[in-house]
Write a protein that binds this DNA or RNA. Structure first.
Length: 358
RNA sequence: UGGGGUGUCGCCAAGUGGUAAGGCACGGGUCUUUGACUCCCGCACCGUAGGUUCAAUUCCUGCCACCCCAG
């Protein structure tokens, strides 16, 4: 058995590499070069894929005596992730680039390379589990709830799941770091990554402007009753549920209700106006491999760090999925992913559509 | 011009003769392999010049600004 390990330079994938090797696989380490290092990297930047990160990965691979490759996926990343990210914001949506990166880079382009290298498995440092169950592969949450990443993996197909390993998926983060330490990995104490990898400054809107060279025009902040409350600095700066950065004083906090690319208006309202019970998810993938033919009762997450919420889900004639929550949810946001769960298992997921698209 | 009113942090807004609540906004931090949210911390010497008083933002006077009414 031969495995290709996607090593980001972080602790998790390093330990994943080690564990895969221990399990008896012939291992090849690799790092995907997804973008040029941003011009300005802030101190203690918590992102991945910088030159330093590649060197950390190489260092660990060397320590483990593995071959190590760096794949240049910059073009594909620009096309499949960054451009899509920009398109979303320009259209009033709020994208989740990490999900796309998993889908189009780690479990697509990397698979092609694995085949070329004669590897039958792809290994990553994600916190999630894959188990065979009734003749199919079930994607399960990680036991370490605080680190569970199953949400960002819903796009995996049965075919992909059959060739993927998540060696640290059973571990707690503490245990992972312990293993890294025991093996003297250079990155055993490296901070967890956060922020969008190609937006190390945390200001994604500035990055969008840099990529497109466009200026996004100011527009009106419109209160739910139609009153114009002020000027916003361009729709790409806002997302549903957002409070900070509006700069408007009011008796109670104001939140973004909706971003309308057609009128260039940003609609505002109160906290209570953010709650709703229904959504339509498109571009849906049934991770479980089973497309339910009737309405099912399950749970769903509409953002990464959220507990699953009880709901019912129904497949529509066009393949989209209608999700109805038992209780109203705060700020169901178009562009974000809605992932369905049955207990620990990821049933599937899709992208939340806007009311206009529905 | 005559009569009345108001003047407290960027916005709204309490308040007392004894040394400035709160909300919003804003800044920082936390959280986080997305964007948000949450939570925490920070954030004024009370229009101005005098006077009364042991002590004034709070009392008095002038001035300035704004608002309303009247012509």
């Amino acid at each position: 058995m031969k495995a290709l390990i996607a090593m980001s330079g972080g602790v998790d994938s390093s330990v994943a590499a080690y564990l895969t090797q221990q399990a008896g696989y012939e291992c090849i380490g690799c790092t995907m070069k997804l973008h040029d290092d941003p011009g300005v990297i802030k101190e203690n930047s918590h992102t991945c894929c910088t030159l330093d990160d590649v060197e950390d990965a190489r260092n660990v691979a060397f320590k483990l005596g593995m071959q190590f490759y760096v794949f240049n996926f910059k073009d594909g990343f620009k096309e499949k992730i960054i451009d899509k990210f920009i398109y979303a914001y320009e259209n009033g949506l709020t994208p989740n680039p990490c999900i796309d990166c998993n889908r189009f880079m780690k479990f697509d382009k990397l698979f092609e390379r694995a085949e070329v290298l004669g590897c039958d498995h792809i290994v990553t440092g994600h916190y999630a589990r894959i188990v065979e169950k009734d003749g199919r592969f079930a994607l399960l949450k990680a036991p370490d709830e605080t680190k569970d990443q199953s949400y960002v993996l819903y796009s995996l197909t049965q075919e992909q799941l059959s060739h993927v390993l998540f060696p640290v998926g059973d571990l707690t983060k503490t245990k992972t770091r312990q293993i890294a330490e025991e093996n003297g990995f250079i990155n055993s104490h490296k901070p967890d990554s956060q922020d969008i990898c190609f937006v190390p400054t945390g200001k994604y809107a500035d990055v969008i402007k840099e990529f497109t060279g466009k200026d996004y025009p100011e527009g009106d902040f419109v209160y739910k009753d139609g009153t114009v409350l002020g000027k916003h600095k361009g729709i790409i700066w806002y997302t549903r549920g957002q409070r900070k950065g509006l700069g408007l004083a009011s008796e109670e906090p104001l939140y973004v209700l909706r971003v309308d690319p057609k009128t260039n208006n940003v609609y505002l309202g109160r906290e209570k106006d953010l709650y709703s019970k229904e959504l339509i998810a498109g571009d849906f993938n049934w991770t479980s491999g089973i497309i339910p033919d009737t309405e099912i009762s399950c749970k769903a997450k509409i953002r990464y760090r959220q507990k699953e919420q009880p709901c019912t889900a129904k497949v529509l004639s066009n393949g989209d999925v209608k999700v109805t929550f038992d209780e109203p949810q705060r700020a169901i946001t178009p562009g974000q992913a809605c992932v369905l769960y049955d207990g620990d298992e990821v049933l599937g997921g899709g992208t939340i559509k806007t009311e206009d698209e529905v």
